[in-house]
């Protein structure tokens, strides 16, 4: 299988606290990896480094063979990050937020892409609602639609189950199944024993800044 994401010898410290310590990770095409760990174990930091929000102290991240530090634009165009924060503007509508993101990714045929993704995620009737007027669950859906808009090869989810009701979780699982079928890879963190996906997954645990297999 082709490796879409390779993390080698990654290290990150905050002050004297080493959060990521010589971490290695490889993610193949069509694979889903779930990382569990206690609060403060470095799950979010790892995703933040991969998405280039935080710089690492040492080590290397390669996305589709491109070094993140040498070719950040290419790497960022191939991945999407759904974090705790939705990365949206509260005073803009769902449509305006998605169109803005699509323009930043230099997408063509923006209108049909926005309609397609919002319909996939059950937001068609909320397109012209301001983000400030939506519930937490719907804001999360918009964040997911924003992440899927440019058809990234790698999807990063940071505790995606938080704040979602049963219906939204079911929808989320359908989306994951659909995205994996398109040869995409998903890296997800959680500290919940139950994850919103029932298919084949590789379970890992982050302890002392390193990843180990997690037999659950």
């Amino acid at each position: 299988m082709n490796s879409l994401l390779e993390v080698e010898n990654l290290t990150k410290s905050y002050g004297r606290n080493r959060v990521i310590d010589n971490l290695y990770l490889s993610l193949s095409s069509g694979e889903i990896v779930i990382i569990r760990g206690a609060n403060g174990s470095g799950k979010t930091t790892l995703l933040s480094i991969i998405s280039s929000l935080v710089s690492s102290d040492s080590g290397r991240v390669k996305i589709l063979g491109n070094d993140l530090k040498l070719n950040p634009h290419i790497c960022r165009s191939e991945l999407a990050f759904v974090a705790h924060q939705p990365f949206l503007y509260s005073q803009l509508t769902v449509r305006e937020n998605l169109e803005f993101s699509a323009r930043l990714h230099s997408l063509k045929d923006i209108n049909s892409k926005v309609l397609n993704k919002t319909s996939l995620i059950g937001l068609s009737d909320r397109l012209d609602s301001k983000i400030a007027t939506l519930s937490h669950g719907f804001i999360k859906r918009v964040a997911i639609a924003r992440a899927l808009l440019h058809d990234p090869k790698i999807l990063l989810f940071d505790e995606p189950e938080s704040g979602l009701d049963r219906e939204s979780l079911q929808l989320f699982e359908e989306i994951i199944t659909g995205e994996l079928a398109k040869e995409r890879s998903i890296l997800m963190t959680t500290h919940s024993p139950q994850i919103p996906y029932q298919g084949d997954v590789r379970n890992l645990r982050i302890t002392k800044g390193m990843l180990v297999d997690d037999p659950l």
């Binding site: 998405s51 280039s52 929000l53 950040p72 634009h73 290419i74 960022r76 165009s77 991945l79 999407a80 990050f81 974090a83 705790h84 924060q85 939705p86 990365f87 949206l88 503007y89 509260s90 005073q91 993101s101 930043l104 990714h105 230099s106 983000i131 804001i139 924003r146």
Partner: peptide, 18 residues
């Protein structure tokens, strides 16, 4: 202000622009 409210600034940083 508007960039910090819902983490929109981080959204800008993860997009493929300099």
């Amino acid at each position: 202000l508007s960039e910090l409210e819902l983490g929109a600034f981080q959204g800008l940083l993860t997009s493929p622009i300099g």
